Simulated assay, not measured.
Amino acid sequence: MTDDDLVSRQIVVLGRKIRHRRNLYSRNLDLTSEQADAIRFFADHPQQTIADFRTFEEITHQTARLIVHRLVQKGLITLQPSPTDGRAKLVHFTVAGLEKQAELEQHIWQTSATLFADFTPTEQRQLLTLLRRASDNLAKKGPEIF
């Protein structure tokens, strides 16, 4: 095994641990992890549409619509017609949705604080820079079929 394999393996293991925490917390809020991701997306990108969410998450439009539809059913978001495109619907949070979003945000901060408890701010910035570079490298190369 090469050093690259060991590093990439550790990134995968770390990702699983973070995802596991997120999934447990999402279930505790009566959300799927996909619904939590949608809430996070629409909080970070106001005035966006289901199509924007689909593109960002790299999922099918049908899957994105289903996730958003379930959030509407839960009373966490509403859909309003776009003033510029009659076919598109803009996503807006309800009061309950804003409360869920705040709870998710708090969990993210707590997880981050735990994850980087013994890192200096400089080390955190260095790691972020390196992770972004690694992610960009994969994006440049594109998906491969093995």
Rank of each mutant, 00 (worst) to 15 (best):
M1G: 15
D4A: 12
D5V: 03
V7M: 01
V7S: 00
R9T: 14
Q10F: 09
V12N: 10
L14H: 14
L14V: 14
I18Q: 03
I18N: 00
H20K: 09
H20T: 10
R21D: 11
R21F: 12
N23T: 13
R27W: 06
R27N: 13
N28Y: 10
L29C: 06
D30T: 04
D30C: 02
L31V: 12
T32M: 06
S33Q: 10
S33V: 11
E34Y: 03
E34Q: 04
E34G: 00
E34T: 00
A36M: 11
A36G: 10
D37Q: 07
F42S: 13
A43Y: 12
A43H: 12
D44A: 11
H45A: 09
Q48K: 15
Q48D: 12
T49L: 05
T49F: 07
T49E: 01
T49W: 04
T49A: 01
T49I: 11
I50A: 14
A51T: 12
R54V: 07
T55Y: 07
F56H: 14
F56Y: 14
E58W: 05
T60R: 13
T60Y: 06
H61E: 15
Q62H: 09
T63R: 03
L66I: 04
L66M: 07
V68I: 13
V68N: 02
H69I: 06
L71W: 07
Q73C: 04
Q73S: 05
K74H: 08
G75V: 02
G75Y: 08
L76N: 00
I77L: 04
T78C: 09
T78I: 14
L79P: 01
L79H: 07
L79C: 00
S82T: 08
T84C: 02
T84Y: 13
A88S: 08
A88L: 06
A88M: 07
V91F: 05
F93L: 06
F93I: 08
T94F: 08
G97C: 02
E99H: 10
Q101H: 08
Q101N: 14
E103L: 05
L104W: 03
E105F: 11
Q106N: 03
Q106D: 09
I108A: 12
I108N: 08
Q110S: 09
T111M: 15
T111E: 11
S112H: 14
S112C: 05
S112P: 04
T114E: 11
L115R: 02
L115H: 02
F116W: 11
D118T: 01
P121I: 00
P121L: 01
T122F: 05
R125T: 10
Q126G: 08
L127D: 03
L127E: 00
L128P: 00
L128Q: 10
L130P: 05
R133S: 09
A134T: 10
S135W: 13
N137R: 09
K141G: 11
G142F: 10
P143F: 13
E144F: 09
I145G: 12
I145N: 06
F146K: 02
